[in-house]
Design a protein around this nucleic acid. Structure first.
Lengths: 245, 245
DNA sequence: CGCGATTTGTGCACGCCTTCACAAGCGCCT
DNA sequence: AGGCGCTTGTGAAGGCGTGCACAAATCGCG
């Protein structure tokens, strides 16, 4: 799922870390579990069954149990999972106990919104620096943070202890920015630009392409339309039924 | 990968559609191939090898060939793929030959940026209506489009022929909006709100959660840090090497 | 103290996806 | 016309992920 491979150093029998190596699919679901757990905690639940948590997270309960079992045994048979304890565990695994410093590069249309997105702060991240190459934008404040020129990136990364970079530039600038981020010591990049980034081993890149998501939906629309339009197999008109649960 | 199942009507031997049933994993990659193909076309390439296209799309060449083989044989052995022909094919499969009408609900911080995101228009989509529940925002223009009140959603969906809805509201409002979209006849939803939506069968939901992507990166940061901190296995300091390609 | 109800943790089988490796096919050059 | 190099398309194998179904474990109650 991740676009770059991870420098895993598989053979290392001597220095066995206590860090569990979770399946990538499990990792991708942990944040969803965490969100559901926070909701449960707010609504006053002390414990939750795998069935309940699975429903809140929109997954199968067997899958959830298997996922959690990879972290260790934090449930009690006959009772369920301790919500507070599980939150701590998941947050620890995800490395959210330390609020990570994030740099955002590109404060155009999308970047501006990301800079003001409070969902980051509320889930363990601090955007500590904003950068742009456009002199027009440099120096202006966004959400209480001044936009700095991209040239200052290297210094800022070191000073602020930044480990994650978010790229929200146009596609043609993204690779250059990625190179600078990597050179400055950033080892994780979230890329919103519609292009492939090449980075050295050991650097993780995740890509979010908003148009791609729509295109995937478009495919399914196309498929559904071609099915209902068939002479033989007319599906129930609008596909609307009662909403279950 | 998709969060909801698809009403597939598997047993229907009589009405065999010419529509190929592609693996979900392949579908998710087609938009990436398409983007790479457009880049190649712009740079004047008439044909491209699987190796070349795979590199441009950031995937394995064998995987790309298998993906494309599912669409049919559009390559020429010894030569490669005809770029223009392949673009047409992929766009047809993705249903992008008709520019789909999209409704965007919630023009807050993120929604505002999505409304102005030109990546949608340039890749086959038209945002034709904006909605919000906040009277403060209703009536104001964004990118040449007036924000309408959410109550008008039902009528607008029918009038404008909207088939895709984008939810960019706070989490607590998302399910209500989804219900209204579905009731109005929308059968595909892109959800940016951090919550699970429940929709009837036949409606596709895709979710994009920006914070989750960061949390996944955070996990890998945590893992990398715990590895380098080990006494035995110190990895090469910054992990920086020459960038390939 | 024992029993039943409940829920976790997991062995197992199945299916999807990826990757390798190679035969088949196409164009070009001689 | 024939052969050679290149590239596609695909059979087969392996790995990963999912979901079922059940044994193991815990709590509460009589």
């Amino acid at each position: 799922m991740s676009q770059q491979r991870h420098g895993n150093t598989p053979g290392n029998p001597g220095a066995v870390t206590a860090f569990p190596d979770l399946p990538e699919a499990t990792i991708a679901r942990l944040p969803e579990y965490l969100r559901a757990l926070h909701n449960l905690a707010e609504s006053g639940s002390d414990t939750v069954s795998s069935e309940g948590l699975a429903a809140a997270a929109g997954v199968n309960s067997a899958k959830l149990r298997k996922d959690l079992s990879h972290l260790g045994s934090y449930g009690t048979r006959g009772v369920g999972y301790d919500v507070a304890l599980l939150i701590d565990q998941v947050e620890y695994i995800l490395g959210l106990d330390e609020r990570r410093a994030v740099a955002l590069v590109g404060v155009g249309n999308l970047g501006h919104a990301l800079a003001g997105y409070d969902g980051f702060a509320s889930r363990g991240f601090r955007i500590v620096a904003l950068f742009d190459a456009d002199a027009e934008r440099v120096g202006k404040p966004i959400n209480g943070l001044l936009v700095r020129h991209i040239d200052e990136l290297g210094r800022a990364v070191v000073e602020e202890g930044i480990t994650i970079g978010v790229i929200a530039t146009p596609a043609n600038a993204a690779q250059g920015v990625a190179d600078e981020l990597v050179a400055a010591g950033v080892t994780s990049i979230l890329n919103f630009a519609p292009c492939v980034l090449s980075v050295p081993a050991g650097v993780d890149v995740r890509k979010v392409d908003l148009a791609i998501e729509l295109q995937i939906l478009s495919f399914h629309e196309h498929r559904k339309a071609s099915l209902t339009a068939l002479p033989g197999g007319r599906v129930d008109e609008s596909g609307i039924e009662a909403v279950g649960s």
